[in-house]
Simulated scan of single mutants.
Amino acid sequence: MPRLSSATYPLSLFCVLVGTLFAQSTQAGTLEAVNHTHWAINRFSVEGRSGIDIIGPYQGGGGGCCYSAPSRWKSGMTVRVDWETGVAYPDGFPGFADEAKYDAWAEQIRTQKRKHSQIVPVPDYSGQKTCGLTVHFLPCDDLLVTTSCYAYGSPEYPIKTPLHLPEPQSCPK
């Protein structure tokens, strides 16, 4: 029998296969994200597992493998989300001809990157099928997560937050 590689099958199928290996205690799926902010999500991870994609403002993405939800939800269950935000569409690109101007512009972009980390409660999924984890990035560095198998925007999806949220003048904290 030929050896199978991860390039042979889509990532989601790979995660399903990994999930079947742990079927007694976990249900595996992909890491997805929905970005409700004007910042780019340069990278994100959940419990150290990469979400893979850069996610632009007001977009979805992810696709990292795999998040395995325990077979039973327990009160107080949380996940750690680490992420980096940055300027999505930087203005004033000077070109490459003047190296000093380019370096100054690139440094200005780098100074706007921010690293974040947050422990987020996982909502009760008792009695429901789980399909990985979707992280919602909200203004003021707030997060919501869900293990729902439904797509964002479908009537059954549990998080009803609109994609385009206004950025507040200041954030509480």
Score class of each variant (00 low, 15 high):
V18Q: 14
S117Y: 09
V87L: 08
Q27I: 07
S75K: 14
M77T: 06
G63R: 05
G62C: 12
F93Y: 13
A100R: 12
A69V: 03
D98T: 03
A88N: 09
G64H: 08
T85V: 04
H38R: 07
I52Q: 12
Q24N: 09
F44I: 00
S71C: 13
Q112G: 08
D103K: 13
G56E: 12
Y67S: 04
P90Y: 00
Y125Q: 05
T20Q: 15
T111S: 15
H38Y: 11
V34C: 07
G95V: 04
V81T: 07
T20H: 14
A88Q: 01
H36Y: 04
A100H: 14
A23P: 11
R110E: 15
Q27F: 03
N35P: 03
P121T: 05
L21W: 09
I52L: 14
G95Q: 07
T20R: 14
S117W: 05
T37C: 04
I109F: 03
S45Q: 12
Y58T: 06
A106I: 14
Q108I: 09
N35Y: 00
P70T: 10
G92I: 04
I119G: 05
I55E: 00
K113Y: 15
C66Q: 10
R43T: 03
A69C: 02
D91W: 01
I54W: 15
E107H: 11
F96A: 13
K115I: 02
R110L: 09
R43Q: 13
Y102N: 08
G61C: 07
I55M: 01
F44G: 00
Y89E: 11
N42S: 05
P123T: 01
A106Q: 11
N35A: 02
W105T: 03
A40T: 08
G19I: 01
G60H: 13
D103L: 14
P90H: 03
F22M: 13
G63N: 08
Y58F: 12
